[in-house]
Amino acid sequence: MMRLPRLRYVAPRTIREAAAALADAGPEGALLAGGTDLLPNMKRRQQVPRILIGLRGVQGLRVRELGEAARLGAGLTLSEMLRDAALCAAYPGLRRAVASISTPPLRNMGTLGGNLCLDTRCNYYNQSLEWRKAIDFCLKKDGTICWVAPASPRCWAVSSSDMAPLMVALGARVTLQSAQGERELAAEALYVDDGIAYLSRRPDEVLTDVVLPPHAGLRCTYLKLRRRGAFDFPVLSVAAALRLDGDHGDAPVREARLVLGAVGSHPVLAAEAGALLVGRPLSEEAIREAAEAAARLAKPLDNTDYALGWRKRMAGPLIAAALRELRGDGPPPHGELARAGVRGRPSGAC
C-alpha cells in the first residue's frame, strides 16, 4: 500500500472557521477539497502537510447562482456542475472543459476550487518518492536542480488545470477569503508564471467562489489535446471567449480572449492575437493571423506526455479549430486529433 503520511484532520463548518484553521496551521496546513490532487501528491510525498482542513462540510462554499451571470462556489463538484443543464447551456465552453477532466468517479469527488488551485505538473515531479530519490530530487520539492532545464534557476512545471484557461478566457473573477478579510481578483491574476509559486493566493487564503461574466451574446469553447479520451491531463489546450457585434457568426468581433493551457506554468493569455480579431469578421484570414500570433506564445518544455515539437506545432491548428467552432461551423469532428485538424499520429510519440 502507498500510504498517506501521518496527519491531523480538522473539519470546519464555515468559511470563517476554515480560514481561521488555515491561519492557525501555518505552513503545516493544507485545504482538502475533493482530495483528487492533494492526496495522490501526499502519497508520493510531493506535498506533506501535517494538518488537513477538510472543506466538504463548509456549506458556504456550495453556492450556485445563475441569472444574467453566474456565481459558483469553490466546493461544487465537477459532476454537480455537469448536471446543471442551465449552467452548461449558458457556458458551453465550461461544460466542455469540466467534462474533459479526469474520469467520472474523480469528477464526483473533485471540486471547482481544487481544480483552479491544482498543483503544476512535470514528468520529473509526478513520480513516487523512490523514483525522485533515485535520480535526485528537483527544485520543486527537496532538490536544487531542474531536470528539464538544468541551467535554469526556476521550475517550469506545467499548469494542467482544464478550467483555469477557460476562466481566464472568460475573464472570470475569483474571491479569496482569509482571517484578515476578503479580496476579489481576475482569474488571470490568480496565476503566476512559476512552477513552484504558481498561485498569487496567499497560503492563508481560501478560494470561496468564482463569478462568470454575463452569458448573453457570449461564445466560448474549450479544446484539449491528450493521449486518451479520459484520465489524461492536457498536453495543450485552447480556451476561447468571444463577443460579436451581431447575432450571426459572420458579424465583426467586438471582444476576443484566447488562452493557451498546458504550455507553461500559468494559463497564457494571447492578448495580441485577441486584439487582431477585433473589428473583423471571423474570416479564414483573420483566424489564420490570430492563430499564428497566439501559437508563437506556445513555448512548452519537454516535461509532459507527447513529443515537444508536436505539442508546439499543434497550437496553431487547435486555436484555429476553436475559432471556427465559435464562428458557428459546429463542433470540430470527433476525436481530439481530428479536432485540431490533423491526421495521423504525432511524430515521436506512441
Binding site: 502507498m2 484532520y9 482530495g35 495522490p40 488537513l52 477538510g54 466538504r56 479526469s102 467520472p104
Partner: peptide
Amino acid sequence: ELGECGACAVLLDGQPVLSCLVLGLE
C-alpha cells in the same frame, strides 16, 4: 492507489468514488 485505475471504486452515498482517494474520516 493514485486515482489512475478505478479498481478501488465504491459507492459513497450512492455516487461512484475512488476509495483510495477518500479519507476514512470523511
